[in-house]
């Protein structure tokens, strides 16, 4: 009994509520005429789409920079990669890879600068990250209008310049990962094997990285910066590296998202994309200063499950569109919970 209590305290009741809520919805789904297999397939797909962006939270949380509300910076790099790849006109897997490489290039530069900035403002990272993210999105909005793109697939038809708000990737690299080795069961259930493999690869890379000397140092910096410094680790450098890594993961994450989603959303699209990712990793059991791969996987699954199931189940159950409200309350409530929880790092 004591153990159960302790578990609940550690895990946090909000997470348990969310978990049981999701279980309830899966049980209720067939009774309100929602197809379980289709839902499940949908959840898997969304899981794959979003997991890497959630993964992008890990390095920064681990190095003590807090939740990465600056994810839009990574997303912008991803969008640059995606649009340049389409501009180059490379299709198929190659196009996807080119997008990823270009995105990584931009992300590493932006991420490093961003890391240097965050080192100057220790203690205020989250608020500043949020506004740096917003500002960069707006800056890029101007850039999308000004940059000399001319692929007819991307620019406004009537003006001949300036990128469209949404750009389709169809004909370039639409669902290249999803369809790779995809396994179909019946009409409604598809396992997007390629997508899941790619996610697994990214998770593995981060997992291995966190176990290298640098990764270990990074975790120590997050756990106790004074200890790390006394052990000869450069705290600032580790933090910068972690921010860079997070930004790069965000860049890859958005491209993976787009190839499955089918569209590149420019302009103000990335503005609030950090919030679902932050909520997801927190639901997965992470705190403001500790996160693991397991948190990423569990959190993404739970959160995306919630996003998939609430509209269909709740709306057919209550005959209204309450799901939106539930989503807002759950995701922001989770972030709020994590922020106000007395952090257990004892000093």
């Amino acid at each position: 009994m004591l153990k159960v209590k302790e578990f609940i305290r550690d895990f946090g009741w909000p997470r348990l509520i969310i978990f049981f809520f999701l279980v309830f919805m899966f049980i209720a789904a067939p009774f309100v005429g929602v197809r379980l297999d289709a839902s499940f397939s949908d959840v898997l797909n969304r899981f794959g789409m979003n997991a890497i962006m959630v993964l992008a939270m890990v390095p920064m949380v681990q190095s003590g920079c807090g939740l990465n509300f600056g994810l839009p910076l990574g997303i912008i790099s991803g969008l640059l990669g995606a649009t340049i790849s389409i501009q180059l006109g490379v299709t198929g897997f190659g196009g996807f890879l080119i997008a990823v490489f270009i995105a990584l290039f931009f992300a590493s530069i932006l991420g490093w600068l961003y890391g240097l900035l965050l080192n100057k403002v220790k203690g205020e990272e989250m608020t500043i990250a949020m506004y740096v993210g917003f500002a960069s999105v707006m800056f890029m909005s101007i850039m999308w209008l000004v940059l000399p793109y001319n692929s007819p697939n991307m620019v406004w038809g009537y003006a001949g310049k300036g990128l469209r708000t949404t750009i389709t990737v169809e004909g370039y690299w639409l669902r290249v990962l999803n369809n790779f080795l995809a396994i179909k069961f019946g009409e409604f259930f598809v396992i997007p094997t390629g997508l899941l493999l790619f996610v697994a690869l990214c998770v593995l890379i981060v997992y291995v990285f966190m176990r290298t000397k640098t990764g270990t140092a990074m975790t120590a910096v997050g756990s106790n910066p004074d200890f790390a410094r006394a052990s000869g680790v450069s705290v600032d450098r580790m933090r910068a590296i972690s921010v860079m890594l997070s930004t790069m993961l965000g860049a890859v994450g958005i491209i993976v998202y787009e190839q499955s989603f089918g569209f590149i959303q420019l302009y103000t699209g990335p503005l609030y994309m950090a919030f679902p990712a932050v909520a997801a990793i927190l639901i997965g059991g992470a705190s403001v200063n500790k996160a693991s791969m397991l948190n990423v996987l569990v959190g993404t699954f739970l959160f995306q499950g919630l996003l998939t199931m609430t509209p269909s189940v709740i709306n057919s159950l209550l005959q209204n569109d309450m799901s939106e409200v539930i989503r807002i309350v759950v995701s922001n409530g989770m972030i709020l919970y994590a922020l106000t929880r007395k952090t257990k790092v004892s000093k």
């Binding site: 959303q265 699209g269 609030y272 996003l307 939106e324």
Partner: peptide, 11 residues
């Protein structure tokens, strides 16, 4: 009167 997704909501 309803939003399709998080992103729409903030549109």
């Amino acid at each position: 009167e309803s939003f399709d997704s998080f992103e729409d909501m903030y549109d």
